[in-house]
Amino acid sequence: MKSELILDVQGLTTVFRMEDGSEIKAVDDVSFNVKSGETVAIVGESGSGKSVTAMSIMRLIPNPPGQIVSGKIHFEGNDLLSMSEEEARAIRGNKISMIFQEPMTSLNPSMTVGRQISEPAEVHSMITSQKASQMSQSLLDAVRIPDSADRVSSYPHEFSGGMRQRVMIAMGMSCNPKLIIADEPTTALDVTVQAQVLHLLKDITYKTNASLILITHDLGVVARYADRVHVMYAGKIVESGKSRDIFNSPQHPYTLALMNSIPRLSNQKKEKLKPIRGNPPDLSKLPVGCSFNPRCDFAIKQCFHEKPTLTTNNRYQSKACWATINDK
């Protein structure tokens, strides 16, 4: 695998202005990169800023109230944030495409599936409308929807949830993008269908050597499909590294807590699950110091008055934490 850099995000900060004039930092100084052909997962609970990060890369943050206040997003060497709307539009859907989480509302009920799949290619005038339906058909084949010749002229309500999500993937693939951002692609699906859809996504990106940013809260998904992982908490990346390393030895207390809160089949001793105590953080009232300190089992004095920064430790793993995890 070539390790050419496709996407490089540096110090991205996205804020939302509230009606009372205060600002909420939904994404706070986030940096990461994606190499070509690689699958990078962004993990975090609701409100951790993972979707806002994705929307920032797509330049789809509604302004007002949202605004990207600082940072650089380089895609294939060009800064997405300094581009004009026209230039950004030429890249959106063409070289970067996004797959949304709600397959039930992500397809236009009044357009045939075939036309929706070929829409990105038509918008970027890569094909004529005669070839569009052919292309849609072969994309439906690629996402393994049977009977594609008939299915191109079906409407979304004739499809099941899993099939719609595959249609979304087909739509995302129609321009042969370099980067696909999948925002919780399987959250709304059955567990059995989830595996199929993820497998398909991985397979397709592998064949076309596209990179994939997988946004999810499901660590099982990450373990299986991602090469590298970034764990987000309260708008910051708290830990990142190769997914294998992170699963073998989580360095940040939050990551460890997430792992401990997953039920395991191998757990013979009937231990109780360990939920993370406390509530997800309120971004408008973050504690002083480390944002995770009220819920942390390992917090030391320093955690309550100084913000930790992301530092690389021995291996290729980095964490933003003062404490050391001493395994029980």
């Binding site: 063409n94 709600e102 236009n108 357009m111 929706q116 918008v123």
Partner: peptide
């Protein structure tokens, strides 16, 4: 609806979003 957001995300112009979606 997400399909409007999706159309925006694939670079469809505002006028076309109105007409098509």
């Amino acid at each position: 609806n997400d399909y409007v957001k999706a159309a925006d995300s694939i670079g469809v112009t505002t006028t076309m979003i109105m007409i098509r979606h």
